[in-house]
């Protein structure tokens, strides 16, 4: 049976797509799933760097598309896991160096040998976006609780709806204290505005910067607070019902009793 093909997208840049792809991929692989991460950000290769695999790249996705190498030759195995590999983006090519059909075919081929293919989408809603969603059967939309990120996410949600691709939402960089004081949109607000089902909430935390600096997935850092956050999201992706702890407070009641939650 062929694996799930999930695009991780946002519209706006810098909201955490690559961070999410890397850490969710690692979390799923740690649970024993076979995972292939595809960097669709042609020209702005990053996923390899976030995972600390940048020195091992030989081929890239465009070379696979052009038939200059086999998919398996281009896949870089992350030796810290049983079965996690990445297919790097081309760094020195244009976004139009690859077509939607080529991209979809590669994703499909990857899905034949994996339980999950996670596609790290570039920012925007142009060609790069269309390539990244071409082979996807599900989507995770990442947004931060800010007006511009949410507006862009809404555009992407519309485009995915048009393609009938089911969507779940990750709210990234949440700052519970700011939500509590009424200075940041709550997760409930964001879900209501976008009318999308919630998959996960990731707080804004320096741990991300620290682990990214070192090229280390959070789930391998036993002391990291965010480790359980990504593990919970991975479990939800696998179909488990994992309750959201009371994180963001909402409305009058929430503001009065302001319970803190994470998940």
């Amino acid at each position: 049976m062929s694996g799930r093909r999930i695009v991780i997208t946002s519209g706006k840049g810098g909201v955490g797509k690559t961070t999410t792809t890397a850490n969710l991929g690692a979390a799923l692989a740690k649970r024993g799933a076979r995972v292939i991460l595809v960097d669709a950000d042609i020209g702005l290769r990053n996923l390899d760097l976030v995972l600390g695999l940048e020195k091992r790249i030989v081929f890239d996705v465009v070379e696979v598309a052009e038939g200059r190498c086999q998919l398996r030759q281009a896949l870089i195995k992350d030796k810290r896991f049983e079965s996690l590999s990445i297919l790097p983006a081309a760094q020195t090519r244009d976004k139009d160096a690859i077509t939607e059909q080529q991209f979809a075919a590669i994703v499909e081929q990857a899905a034949e040998q994996a339980d999950y293919v996670l596609i790290d989408c570039p920012a925007g809603i142009e060609a790069g976006f269309r390539n990244a969603i071409a082979g996807a059967s599900e989507a995770i939309v990442v947004t931060t609780p800010e007006v511009s990120a949410i507006r862009d996410a809404d555009r992407v949600v519309g485009k995915l709806n048009d393609k009938k691709i089911p969507i779940r939402l990750i709210v990234n960089r949440l700052r519970p204290a700011m939500v509590k004081s009424g200075d940041m949109l709550s997760v409930d607000d964001v879900c209501e505005i976008l009318s999308v089902e919630l998959l996960g909430i990731v707080p804004d935390d320096e741990e991300i910067i620290d682990t990214t600096n070192r090229g280390e997935p959070i789930v391998l850092d036993e002391s990291a607070k965010l480790r359980t956050i990504y593990e919970k999201i991975a479990r939800r992706m696998e179909g488990e019902v994992v309750p959201f702890t009371n994180f963001d407070s909402q409305g009058l009641f929430g503001r009065l009793f302001g319970a803190l939650k994470a998940g």
Partner: peptide
């Protein structure tokens, strides 16, 4: 109004 409720209102309209 808090800034978050202003944000919500503005977003609702712009969307």
């Amino acid at each position: 109004q808090t800034s978050s409720s202003t944000a919500k209102e503005r977003l609702r309209l712009v969307l």
